[in-house]
Design a protein around this nucleic acid. Structure first.
Length: 317
DNA sequence: AAATGTGGCAACCGCCTGCTA
DNA sequence: TTAGCAGGCGGTTGCCACATT
């Protein structure tokens, strides 16, 4: 069965919408409501196809659309939902009030996806990409003492491991439950925001305080990207277990913010946080360096993958 | 100042799904 | 049961603004 075009394209306008066209569409929908997109252009006096009108309305003109940069919480939610739903942009958008699937899709492709790649995280699987990591630097680094590295496992916050584990289980066994948890998390974030005012930096600070603890607990390994921490797992090494152990806990994702403004506010927040407790956090790169460098350094600081204690490095070689 | 490169985003394309007759 | 249709969806394109050379 051949798919017939939604409208006769002859004589219909394409390309960017003019303010006049927008006004016509808004006026018509205000009077008659959305729907019946096939007949809408004719009735509204628009030389557009119905599909174009629907897209223009749902992606741009709808009054409940939230314009502007994505908040930190929104970015975090997108990443969490994408790890469960994949490229189901409409499903993700349904859980982000005021955001359209198109907007989220664009934002993912232009900001989040690239950043995950730069961090060595596969944006499809949400797992670290070994092919992106310069593992040789791990072995060639004269400053990396492998035995002491493996001894770090006791320093990893067990709560992080617990959360990562529950996330992994939820993701693989019960995606719906994970979605529910994410929604609960969103509600909680909203409550925190409401109780603390509209400034998201409060929430960011609380989140980063936790990361700061992590950062404090796991000593830096200079000249080693990514930095490596050890899992408390005592499972024997095999491909599957290793891969699952390599699933990143959510905290690692939350260490960046994709929009420039949010990045700046994030770093301000971090900076303030570190000022309040200077022993709790320190940048590898001085804050006087470029923002981009800060971001890279900042991201790499948190690329702390879990490596099973029994990992045999010969398997890699 | 001009040419070129790059990133972001609105909009389009074509396939899929579900409803209806 | 099946054909036809409208609406929805994800992938892709192309334009424009800004950055860089």
């Amino acid at each position: 069965m051949g798919r017939t075009p939604c409208c006769d394209k002859n004589g219909l306008k394409k390309g960017p919408w003019t303010p006049e066209e927008d006004q016509k569409l808004i006026h018509y929908i205000q009077l008659h409501g959305p729907g019946n997109w096939r007949n809408l252009p004719k009735n509204a006096g628009l030389q557009r196809c119905g599909k174009s009108c629907r897209l223009r309305w749902t992606n741009y003109l709808r009054p409940d659309i939230r314009r502007g940069r994505f908040s930190f919480e929104e970015e975090e939610t997108i990443i969490q939902l994408h790890s469960v739903l994949g490229n189901k942009w409409s499903a993700i958008a349904a859980r982000l009030p005021g955001r359209t699937d198109n907007e989220i899709k664009n934002y993912w492709n232009t900001h989040i996806r690239k950043r995950l790649l730069r961090m060595g995280i596969d944006p499809v699987t949400h797992r670290p990409r070994l092919d992106f990591l310069d593992l040789s630097s791990l072995f060639n680094s004269t400053q990396l003492n492998l035995s002491s590295l493996l001894g770090l496992q006791a320093l990893v916050n067990p709560e992080i491991l617990k959360l990562a584990n529950s996330l992994l289980i939820s993701q693989t066994e019960n995606p719906e439950l994970l979605l529910q948890k994410i929604q609960e998390n969103q509600l909680l974030n909203g409550q925190i925001q409401n109780s603390q005012g509209p400034n998201i930096s409060n929430n960011q600070t609380s989140m980063f305080q936790y990361n700061n603890q992590l950062h404090h607990q796991v000593p830096e390994i200079p000249n080693c990207t990514p930095n490596v921490s050890c899992s408390s797992s005592h499972q024997s090494m095999n491909g599957q277990i290793f891969q699952e152990n390599m699933m990143l806990p959510l905290q690692y994702y939350s260490n960046y913010s994709a929009s420039d403004a949010t990045e700046n506010s994030t770093f301000q927040s971090l900076n303030n946080s570190s000022n309040q407790n200077s022993q709790n956090f320190s940048f590898d790169t001085p804050l006087s360096s470029g923002i981009e460098d800060e971001k890279e350094s900042y991201c790499s600081n948190f690329m702390k993958f879990e490596i099973p204690e029994s990992l045999d490095f010969d398997d890699f070689m």
